[in-house]
Amino acid sequence: MSEQIMTVRSLKRREAMAAYAFILPTLLGFLVFVVGPMLASFALSLFDWNLLTPPEYVGLANWEKLFSDARVGGIYVNTLRLSLMVVFSNMTFGLLFAILLDSKLPVLIRNFFRISYFFPYVVSAVAVSLIWTFLFNRDLGPLNYYLGLLGVDSRINWLNSSQWSPLAIVIADVWKNVGFYILVFLGGMQAISRDFYEAAEVDGANTWQKFRNITLPLLSPTILFLLVISIIGALQIFEQPQILTSGGPGDATRTIVLYIYEQGFKFFDMGYAATLAISLFAIILVLTIIQFRLSRRWVFYQ
């Protein structure tokens, strides 16, 4: 009897040992590359450090700088405005094209559309931004040329005017990402039971009524999911403004992550860069919580 208990115990101990061995690589990496840097950010925000001279403790000076830095507020406003434009455009075009694709199409043609819409999503943001740098060229770019043929002012200064450059970034971003939105929406639509539509047809509902009263409410979990991940993603846009406009003109397209990069790796102000990063982290955390709270009110599950 006691021997049996011993075996069970030692078996359990062996299982636990194996488990620790199994999680060790992830745990170790997690501590060194995630938890450590996360805590270090907070510590770093209390220091002034340019990597060359030893770090100097400055208390809350970086935080005071953050709140008195006239550029930060503007950059946050620009980042937020850009994010909302990016998310709104992606969601709208994504939903529109998902609806168009959710009709009876020959398999071959549907696949062709799926592939052509989705492919830019797997191309790096760097390559996409480089391509669009040329497409947006004011004098020789194809975009202005074809706009000219359509009778639009054909000398739009896409990348160097504070009026147009945010729109340029939105266009490049939608071109790259909209395929992802289309396919996620399409997945959501195809999960909706056909019975609802048939019942609505019996009641004489038209296409718009079916969309408004069946598709949209039942798609709300998908919409919320996309909204959460895209706003969080959009707040961290970096490649597009860095490559297309370098944040300019002025701060018109300077996103907060681009500003963090510049403070940290151009001006080597590590403490201030860490402080900015924490502020972004806080904002993203708050947004996530707000969105989950709101979701309870307007998300319908099938």
Binding site: A40, S41, I232, I260, M270, A274, A277, L280, L285
Partner: peptide
Amino acid sequence: LEFRGKNVLFMLLISALMIPGQVTLVPL
């Protein structure tokens, strides 16, 4: 597998999904 601290460790790991990658780049 059963081991001590399993749930706490898992929660900790999952909460890391809330940390945007760009935030830890400077200390990394």
